[in-house]
Nucleic acid binder design. Structure first.
Lengths: 355, 355
DNA sequence: GTGAAAGCGCTAACAT
DNA sequence: ATGTTAGCGCTTTCAC
């Protein structure tokens, strides 16, 4: 093949031209440029960056200088492709704009960043179909692991996740049969404990204000069941709000319940924000809390001790959930011991003034 | 070189073995597998996915069937590398756990997802140094564009951003000299407008509760300056809280100010949450709002009309900001007209019952 | 309309 | 300790 070298050279020239164009377009300095400048092979630069301990002191120095001078920024797309390690974790949350979930993802993000990981965000909008689509989209990015809020996924979503063969951690709920790992607490146990707590305090009339969120609904059902087990007869006055807890709906639904003839008792709200709304409606009507209307929230958010009166609620450790999830995933990608597959963080009832 | 083919074959065999191992390890189906199955070249499969209009009807069908059967999930790392288009936008926010910023990023995320884009999240923790580090980290992923909350960046950060030569949109503030594009409103104008509004309502004594956030501080300063321009003499009673608005600090700082001898007047809070805290402290002390203590917040969050009394505040369109930012970035990556480089969304004062 | 070939920028064996 | 080599899985000219 006498023309082989010729054609090859041709191709090279073309490539060089294209590269020059790229450079101009801002696509930047490459490993190779740095290597040339430092007078070493590209592989050595790669080592200097990823395993500096394997490079001689002075070589390392030369390389670092070259990196500084050129302003080199490693292309993690290329690195991820070559190493099959994207250093990316996906995080799927029902809503970005829900503070309690955001706190978990925040502590997760901070922890993984310490290890050079970044987070690819997906929002499922409290819907299993959306979750399935978002999970598929996100997996195309080949994350090394994924954290999901909630344990109720569509069949297709479960299959996709399993097929990806990456570590998965589900949080904010618990189950003996996680996809892979789960870190959370039992919503049924919360519902029952709240019922028992209120009953124990002597309340005999109850109400429920619950957001249309899978986990909130579980708590509400368990609350209702436990009450009837405790001998509370009759229909439980109940209001459902859109998912994503808001003060606004708490206040409105309480107003509606009151107008519809609800005459006081103890109300369990599926979030502190909802509970705060209930409190405000009570205040607006001049109802005495907790004498005429008792309220218990859920979450123990930072403002709970500062409502007036101070809100009784259920505490869960959202920050720890994110932290442990991060550590479980990091352990898995580093082939270390990730600990138990099922971690129950529990919860506690924080008694303040409203119930 | 008689042994050339031999060695090559050797290498091939090794590669094949490695690939098989990969497959087993879950690294999945590739374009090539799909192509084989559909009896076409890999390039055709690529076209079928990215430019289906360029592929014959029946070929397309065969390919789609093969994709379904194999459960093929395109590797976007590889795609991004090959095309120098990552289909990723980076979003840098001061805190994930601040609802007002989250709402902007939420609408941003939803809009770009419609165009197949995903969001890489970075948190700057209200610090310029952290922002610089996070921006550098995120740029390694070669996002096609970036949205930043705020316009105050370190010099290094600005340089890095400029060197990346990607579209940048700054939001939540405004400046005649954006890095690239800016969509927001003037915090100085807000501060002045609030001062004028309260002065116009007849208030002559004032207070300020402000979070330690660059933008909140600007509003506070402009408020103070405008008051003195209006002839309000003397030191302005003022309390500063940590960044990230919380009801808790609003209530506490108000309590401290009251204890320190602040005897009422109109208080401007840098967020609705802070204002709500102030309202609660007033309630706890039995102060009449707005007669003995008037309050104005900032943000017009969803709960503002539902506090008791209903909160007077400043409305800004957080959702629209995210939406427009998304559209500006999408326009730029598609070489379409991104519109004005500086977009002032303005604000309005919403009069309710507290001031 | 489809295929062949050449890379995208990096990492990881392997060899020295 | 460093260099050589062969990919990672895709996209994109260029030919046909």
């Amino acid at each position: 093949m006498p023309d082989m070298p010729y054609r090859k050279k041709d191709a090279r020239a073309r490539t060089a031209r294209r590269r020059a164009a790229r450079r101009q377009a801002g696509h930047g300095v490459t490993l190779e440029n740095v290597a040339e400048r430092a007078g070493v092979a590209p592989a050595t630069v790669s080592r200097a960056i990823n395993h500096p301990e394997k490079v001689a002191r002075d070589t390392l120095e030369r390389i670092n200088r070259a990196i500084e001078q050129t302003g080199y920024l490693p292309n993690l797309l290329a690195g991820g492709l070559a190493s099959s390690r994207s250093r990316l974790f996906a995080a799927i949350m029902p809503s970005i704009a829900n503070l309690v979930y955001a706190e978990t993802i925040q502590s997760f993000t901070r922890r993984i960043r310490e290890n050079g990981y970044q987070v690819l965000l997906g929002e499922s909008g409290y819907s299993q179909e959306e979750e399935e689509a978002v999970v598929a989209a996100v997996l195309g990015r080949r994350p090394d692991g994924i954290i999901l809020i909630g344990i109720n996924h569509s069949l297709g979503c479960r299959r996709t996740l399993l097929a990806a063969k990456i570590p998965v951690v589900e949080v904010w709920d618990i189950t003996p049969t996680p996809l892979d790992m789960v870190i959370g607490y039992s919503h049924e146990a919360v519902g029952r404990a709240v019922a028992a707590y209120l009953h124990g305090k002597g309340y005999r009339r109850f109400g429920l204000v619950v957001a249309g969120d899978a986990r909130a609904i579980k708590r509400g059902q368990a609350f209702e069941e436990e009450l009837s087990r405790l001998g509370i007869a009759g229909e439980l006055p109940k209001a459902v709000t859109p998912p994503g807890s808001s003060l606004q709906y708490g206040r409105r639904r309480m107003a509606e319940m009151l107008d519809a003839g609800f005459t006081g008792g103890a109300v369990f709200c599926s979030s502190d924000r909802l509970a705060h709304g209930v409190l405000i409606e009570a205040q607006a009507r001049g109802l005495k809390v907790p004498e005429e209307l008792a309220v218990i929230g859920f979450g123990d958010q930072d403002f709970a001790p500062f409502t007036y009166p101070a809100l009784t609620t259920v505490r869960i450790d959202r920050v720890r959930m994110g932290l442990l999830a991060a550590e479980a995933l990091l352990a898995r990608v580093n082939d270390e011991d990730p600990g138990e597959a099922v971690v129950d963080l529990g919860f506690s009832i924080v008694e303040r003034e409203t119930a």
